[in-house]
Lab assay of single mutants.
Amino acid sequence: MTEYKLVVVGAGGVGKSALTIQLIQNHFVDEYDPTIEDSYRKQVVIDGETCLLDILDTAGQEEYSAMRDQYMRTGEGFLCVFAINNTKSFEDIHHYREQIKRVKDSEDVPMVLVGNKCDLPSRTVDTKQAQDLARSYGIPFIETSAKTRQGVDDAFYTLVREIRKHKEKMSKDGKKKKKKSKTKCVIM
Results as ranks from 00 to 15, higher is better:
residue 63 E to I: 02
residue 63 E to L: 03
residue 63 E to A: 04
residue 63 E to R: 06
residue 63 E to H: 06
residue 63 E to S: 06
residue 64 Y to I: 02
residue 64 Y to V: 03
residue 64 Y to W: 08
residue 64 Y to E: 04
residue 65 S to W: 04
residue 65 S to D: 06
residue 65 S to R: 06
residue 65 S to G: 13
residue 65 S to C: 06
residue 66 A to K: 07
residue 66 A to R: 05
residue 66 A to I: 08
residue 66 A to S: 13
residue 66 A to N: 11
residue 67 M to Q: 06
residue 67 M to C: 05
residue 67 M to Y: 06
residue 67 M to E: 05
residue 67 M to L: 09
residue 67 M to R: 08
residue 67 M to H: 07
residue 67 M to I: 05
residue 67 M to N: 07
residue 67 M to G: 07
residue 68 R to I: 03
residue 68 R to Y: 02
residue 68 R to W: 02
residue 68 R to S: 12
residue 68 R to P: 05
residue 68 R to M: 04
residue 68 R to G: 08
residue 69 D to K: 05
residue 69 D to I: 01
residue 69 D to V: 01
residue 69 D to S: 07
residue 70 Q to W: 03
residue 70 Q to A: 11
residue 70 Q to G: 10
residue 70 Q to H: 09
residue 71 Y to N: 13
residue 71 Y to L: 04
residue 71 Y to V: 10
residue 71 Y to C: 15
residue 71 Y to F: 08
residue 71 Y to G: 15
residue 71 Y to T: 13
residue 72 M to A: 11
residue 72 M to F: 09
residue 72 M to D: 09
residue 73 R to G: 11
residue 73 R to Y: 10
residue 73 R to C: 09
residue 74 T to D: 14
residue 74 T to L: 07
residue 74 T to V: 07
residue 74 T to H: 11
residue 75 G to E: 04
residue 75 G to C: 10
residue 75 G to D: 03
residue 76 E to C: 14
residue 76 E to G: 05
residue 77 G to Y: 05
residue 77 G to K: 00
residue 77 G to I: 07
residue 78 F to L: 04
residue 78 F to Q: 00
residue 79 L to K: 01
residue 79 L to Y: 02
residue 79 L to A: 04
residue 79 L to W: 00
residue 80 C to G: 04
residue 80 C to M: 12
residue 80 C to I: 12
residue 80 C to T: 03
residue 80 C to A: 04
residue 80 C to L: 14
residue 80 C to N: 02
residue 81 V to P: 03
residue 81 V to H: 03
residue 81 V to E: 05
residue 81 V to Y: 00
residue 82 F to W: 07
residue 82 F to N: 03
residue 83 A to L: 02
residue 83 A to W: 02
residue 83 A to Q: 14
residue 84 I to A: 15
residue 84 I to C: 14
residue 84 I to P: 15
residue 84 I to F: 14
residue 84 I to R: 12
residue 84 I to E: 15
residue 84 I to S: 15
residue 89 S to A: 13
residue 90 F to D: 02
residue 91 E to C: 02
residue 92 D to G: 08
residue 96 Y to W: 15
residue 96 Y to A: 04
residue 97 R to K: 14
residue 97 R to E: 11
residue 98 E to C: 04
residue 98 E to V: 01
residue 98 E to S: 05
residue 98 E to W: 01
residue 99 Q to D: 04
residue 99 Q to G: 03
residue 100 I to K: 01
residue 100 I to R: 01
residue 101 K to I: 04
residue 101 K to F: 06
residue 101 K to H: 05
residue 101 K to R: 11
residue 103 V to S: 07
residue 103 V to Y: 09
residue 103 V to W: 14
residue 103 V to C: 14
residue 103 V to E: 06
residue 104 K to L: 09
residue 104 K to S: 13
residue 104 K to M: 13
residue 105 D to E: 10
residue 105 D to T: 03
residue 105 D to N: 11
residue 106 S to M: 08
residue 106 S to F: 12
residue 106 S to P: 05
residue 106 S to H: 12
residue 106 S to E: 13
residue 106 S to C: 13
residue 107 E to R: 07
residue 107 E to I: 11
residue 107 E to Y: 10
residue 107 E to Q: 07
residue 107 E to K: 06
residue 108 D to A: 08
residue 108 D to T: 04
residue 108 D to H: 10
residue 108 D to S: 08
residue 108 D to Y: 07
residue 108 D to F: 09
residue 108 D to V: 05
residue 109 V to Q: 01
residue 109 V to I: 13
residue 109 V to E: 01
residue 109 V to Y: 05
residue 110 P to L: 02
residue 110 P to M: 02
residue 111 M to V: 04
residue 111 M to Y: 02
residue 111 M to H: 01
residue 111 M to G: 01
residue 111 M to A: 01
residue 112 V to I: 12
residue 112 V to Q: 01
residue 112 V to W: 01
residue 112 V to L: 05
residue 112 V to M: 04
residue 112 V to A: 02
residue 113 L to F: 13
residue 113 L to I: 13
residue 114 V to K: 00
residue 114 V to C: 06
residue 115 G to R: 03
residue 115 G to D: 03
residue 115 G to E: 04
residue 115 G to P: 06
residue 115 G to T: 06
residue 115 G to V: 12
residue 115 G to F: 14
residue 115 G to A: 14
residue 116 N to T: 15
residue 116 N to G: 07
residue 116 N to W: 00
residue 116 N to R: 00
residue 116 N to S: 14
residue 117 K to C: 14
residue 117 K to L: 15
residue 117 K to Y: 15
residue 117 K to R: 13
residue 118 C to L: 09
residue 118 C to Q: 06
residue 118 C to K: 07
residue 119 D to S: 05
residue 119 D to M: 05
residue 119 D to N: 06
residue 119 D to F: 03
residue 120 L to K: 08
residue 121 P to W: 10
residue 121 P to S: 13
residue 121 P to D: 15
residue 121 P to I: 08
residue 121 P to A: 13
residue 122 S to K: 09
residue 122 S to L: 08
residue 122 S to E: 13
residue 122 S to C: 10
residue 122 S to N: 12
residue 122 S to V: 10
residue 122 S to R: 06
residue 123 R to D: 14
residue 123 R to S: 14
residue 123 R to P: 12
residue 123 R to F: 08
residue 123 R to G: 14
residue 124 T to A: 12
residue 124 T to L: 09
residue 124 T to F: 09
residue 124 T to Q: 12
residue 125 V to R: 11
residue 125 V to I: 10
residue 125 V to E: 13
residue 125 V to H: 10
residue 125 V to T: 11
residue 126 D to I: 07
residue 126 D to A: 08
residue 126 D to Q: 11
residue 126 D to G: 09
residue 126 D to V: 07
residue 126 D to Y: 08
residue 126 D to T: 09
residue 126 D to L: 07
residue 126 D to W: 07
residue 126 D to H: 10
residue 126 D to P: 05
